[in-house]
Computed example of a mutant assay.
Amino acid sequence: MELFTDYTLRTVTIGAMLLGAISGFLGCFAVLRRQALLGDAMSHAALPGIALAFLLTGQRDPFILFVGAASAALLAALWLLVVVRTTRIKDDAALALILAVFFGFGLVLLSYLQRQPNAAQAGLKSFLFGQAAALIERDLWAMLVVGVPALALVLIFWPQVKLVTFDPDFARSIGLPVRGFDVLLTVVIVAAIVIGIQTVGVVLMSAMLVAPAVAARQWTNRLETMVVLAAGFGALAAMAGAWLSTLGEGLATGPLIVLMMSLVTVLSLVFAPGRGLLWRNLRRRQVLQAS
């Protein structure tokens, strides 16, 4: 009943469930395109954008901070593309370089801001590990304004996105602008990252993208079913994490959400029919017994 009567708990739970559903849905494309580490790099790269947005405006308005985070994350993705295409540096090395440079720059900016007179009202350090308890109704609207258009873009171009995700060579051969759809998918992943930074922080945000998608992949071979399951797993884990955080004083909501999502992923890896470890071992044992 507290979910309906307590403003803070209701706001945190709804915000966490929105984040879980949106990041789970959009994270499927990062996992299927083998770009899970790209989400990790962009989430860390968003930190200096948040700090610069506050430094330039002096406001902690969620829309302003979201714009700063998105700008920095997109810049990081663009830099990654340039580095990989113009040098001999491989993707993994370029990702590590970008993550370290942007995150280090963000920490330097945070240290500088802590010495400013308005540092107390900024509260920007909460974006490292998240502070879901600080969510207010305005933050939920910001999540919707950023997240819903990202989902709409994917749904509008669903056939093309699906083809580019699974067979980019064939998509290119029939004249689809594969590079343009790569940019589109990068933009929507950035959208998922920026709406979750306040809730789970830049350090843990990549788990919200990857874990629901990995869990959902164990249960199905169809993309349509996978994205629905990933959104459901993300929302369920977020609700469970928000509820558990109310059981003890000082329990952080963001890490609990990630732990619940990790539990769902582990259970899926073990018990999912067909692909789960348990079922595969049983099938192997039956084959050995039959032979």
Rank of each mutant, 00 (worst) to 15 (best):
D182Y: 02
G180L: 07
R179K: 14
A171P: 05
K162F: 14
L163A: 11
S173H: 05
R179D: 13
P168N: 12
D182S: 10
A191T: 00
T165N: 00
V187C: 14
T165F: 13
T186P: 03
T165K: 09
D167S: 13
V183E: 08
I174C: 11
P177I: 12
V187D: 12
V164Y: 02
V190T: 10
D182E: 10
V178N: 05
I174L: 05
T165E: 08
K162M: 15
K162I: 08
R172P: 04
L184M: 15
D169Y: 04
V187F: 07
F181S: 01
T165Q: 01
L176M: 15
V161C: 15
R172K: 06
D182N: 07
V161E: 11
D182H: 01
V190I: 15
L184K: 15
V187P: 05
I189D: 00
A191C: 09
G175E: 00
S173M: 03
I189E: 01
D167A: 07
V164Q: 08
R179T: 15
L176A: 01
V190C: 07
R172Y: 11
L176T: 05
A171W: 09
L176D: 12
A171Q: 05
T186W: 06
V164N: 04
D167V: 04
R172E: 15
F166P: 00
R172M: 14
V178S: 01
F181L: 12
K162G: 13
L176S: 07
I174M: 06
S173Y: 08
G180N: 12
P177Y: 09
L163K: 10
G175Q: 00
I189A: 05
K162Q: 13
V164C: 04
L185V: 02
L185N: 03
L163C: 04
L184Y: 08
V183I: 15
A171M: 11
R179V: 13
S173W: 02
G180K: 09
F166S: 00
F166M: 01
